[in-house]
């Protein structure tokens, strides 16, 4: 410090300063330092540029088919949870179509399920073949719901039924 009276200011106060995370006294001290210290003004510019760059990142759309895969996987994993007490600390790789994102049916199925969930509409059941296998999906949900009385996934079974892709 230059005057020997001002408390030592760390430059990490600059990020807190631009984020509005400083109290009145600290903010005043930072402003006083900025007024006389060119290096600090330069650092402040850098902080602002980096901050704006991250805040300016666009929102990304989830890959097509993600939600259907997550839906199916969560049901299957939950079904086997009771036999596995040691998987809480690791992330299980998501099951994906091969090659990823190339499955037209998967994309359509995901979109259909997403729409069905989104509008909360359950269409009548039909006896068409679906992808993924409807029996497997519903069995999975049924098995899961049998383990937990308030299984939120079981409510999705009707929504998955209208995934009718093959004519």
């Amino acid at each position: 410090m230059t005057d020997g009276l001002e408390p030592r200011l760390g430059e990490d106060l600059l990020s807190a300063y631009v984020d509005g995370e400083l109290g009145d006294a600290e903010r005043a001290a930072v402003q006083a330092r900025l007024a006389r210290d060119e290096l600090w003004r330069h650092i402040l510019d850098d902080v602002n540029i980096a901050r704006a760059a991250v805040r300016g990142l666009p929102e990304r759309d989830a890959p097509s088919g993600l939600w259907l895969r997550v839906l199916t996987n969560v049901a299957e994993i939950a079904e086997h949870d009771r036999d596995n007490t040691d998987r809480g600390a690791s992330v299980v790789a998501i099951a994906r179509p091969t090659p990823r994102r190339s499955s037209r049916w998967g994309a359509i199925a995901a979109a259909t399920v997403a729409v069905a969930i989104g509008v909360g509409v359950a269409a009548p059941q039909r006896n068409h073949q679906v992808s993924p296998s409807l029996p497997a999906l519903t069995d999975s949900h049924a098995a899961t719901s049998s383990l937990q009385t308030s299984d939120p996934l079981s409510n999705l079974a009707p929504a998955a039924v209208p995934v009718v892709l093959h004519r």
Binding site: R60, D61, A62, V70, V74, V91, V92
Partner: peptide
Amino acid sequence: GRFLYNVAYRLAGNDADAQDLVQETLL
């Protein structure tokens, strides 16, 4: 879901890991 995927993607830095994070998070 979209919010979760975006946070996961920014943390993981790639789509595959982001998807895994989303799945584990929802579990």
